[in-house]
């Protein structure tokens, strides 16, 4: 073996040389067998993406189109394979979403295309790909990132879904508001039974966990915003749908509880600096339903106020809530048939779908805004824990 003479960092060009026969070993160690919870925790965010890109740069540098194609195909297929295998694990999916995006950003940042070079240092410009235009592969990677995003959303839904009805509707944190339970409410019994139920706190803890995992993986802030908006949409849609189907959830005090819960979710957004990501807006139908439970529902003026307030609810939803509304305390009254007729008449000309329930499967279209990195490739050092000692820094 040749003696490995350490070189000064400034002599490196930010490439990693590998033998063609080591390609499978490379994707195996760096993608298929990398444990996001183990080794990857201590890595700089996106390191696997940078390492793979530095290998790609070398294949480009030696002008070997077959090597470039083969590596890209192996990378993409390996990411797909690991997601097939561990696609129900939020950490794995989040890890590969952020790395796929980082790899895609690198392909742009070092493409030589002026539109992506605006923030580059001159050294970074020197490191642009020299022989191949990989625009078509960028498209494939972008398609892959969309697939991974959708998988992340599904994964997150599977975890959140069982918590939503219990945490947002059933569990009561405001003491003494409801007094007498509305008829038909399943009685919550001993504290032991409560231990198995989810509370709003469980939801908030889960949101914290998702958020901190994504931050740890160096997920693009713009992408985190989109995930959070989708999370809030699901929470709002599942909660509203259950409210629309359960008489025992349509009372003045439930309205109060929901508004409190929504305020806690808003507080969470504020705390995470995510107030402008559009998440709060997705809760608007639920907020309006909660308000509807609490406003007076008697006179023509009440009807007018309701119609202008509930612009995010469909007529079907408004009428359903009014029909289900169940007085709990002496000062509350059932909504009269006449009042509901008045509302229906007022809303007659609205152009809307007659759909009662919200689509809980809806996924907002995702985008991956270009996010160049200031990291200098030539300074990247690869920890031995990655098991890629067969790569040579060039």
């Amino acid at each position: 073996h040749p003696v490995n003479i350490p070189r000064r960092e400034k002599d490196f060009q930010g490439m990693l040389e590998y033998k063609k026969e080591d390609e499978l070993k490379l994707v195996k160690n760096l993608i298929l067998e990398l444990k996001p919870r183990g080794v990857a925790v201590n890595l700089i965010p996106g390191l696997p993406a940078y390492v793979l890109f530095m290998c790609l740069r070398h294949a480009d540098y030696i002008n070997d189109d077959q090597k470039v194609r083969s590596l890209l195909t192996s990378i993409i297929n390996s990411i797909k394979k690991i997601l097939k295998k561990r696609g129900d694990d939020f950490e794995t999916v989040s890890f590969w979403l952020s790395n796929t995006c980082r790899f895609l950003h690198c392909l742009k940042q070092y493409s030589g295309d002026e539109q992506f070079m605006k923030h580059n240092t001159s050294k970074q410009n020197d490191h642009c790909l020299s022989n191949f235009d990989l625009a078509e592969y960028r498209q494939v990677l972008s398609d892959l990132a969309i697939q991974i995003y959708q998988q992340l959303i599904k994964c997150m839904e599977n975890i959140l879904q069982p918590m939503i009805v219990s945490g947002m509707l059933e569990h009561e944190t405001i003491q003494g508001v409801s007094g007498v339970k509305p008829t038909g409410l399943r009685k919550r019994t001993s504290s032991i039974a409560d231990e198995g139920t989810y509370t709003l706190d469980s939801i908030i803890r889960q949101l914290n966990s998702f958020h901190s995992i994504m931050c740890q993986h160096g997920t693009d802030p713009e992408l985190i915003k989109q995930v959070v908006k989708q999370q809030f949409y699901i929470i709002g849609a599942v909660t509203l749908n259950n409210l629309l189907l359960r008489k025992d959830m349509c009372s003045w005090s439930k309205g109060m509880q929901i508004r409190y819960n929504v305020s806690q979710l808003e507080e969470w957004l504020r705390d995470k600096n995510l107030m402008t990501c559009g998440a709060k807006e997705t809760l608007e139908p639920l907020i309006q339903a909660a308000q509807l439970l609490q406003v007076k529902k008697k006179t023509d003026e009440d009807a007018e106020a309701i119609c202008s307030m509930c612009n995010s609810l469909s007529t079907a939803q408004i009428v359903k809530v009014l029909n289900l509304y169940t007085p709990v305390n002496a000062f509350e009254e059932r909504v009269s048939v006449l009042f509901i007729r008045t509302i229906q008449t007022r809303l007659r000309d609205r152009k809307e779908s007659p759909q009662l329930l919200m689509d809980t499967k809806l996924i907002y279209p995702v985008t991956f805004p270009f996010n160049p990195s200031s990291l200098a490739l030539e300074t990247i050092q690869i920890p031995s824990s990655l098991n890629v000692g067969f790569l040579t820094r060039v």
Binding site: G112, L129, L134, V140, D143
Partner: peptide
């Protein structure tokens, strides 16, 4: 100037076509 370089466009297969080039053939077969 790096941006003035002429690079060769590498035609890429689609994601689905890529899947057919299974690089893990040996491992995946029973």
């Amino acid at each position: 100037r790096p941006q003035s370089r002429i690079r060769v466009l590498l035609k890429a297969p689609t994601l689905a076509e890529m899947e057919e080039m299974n690089i893990f053939e040996d491992e995946d077969s029973p």
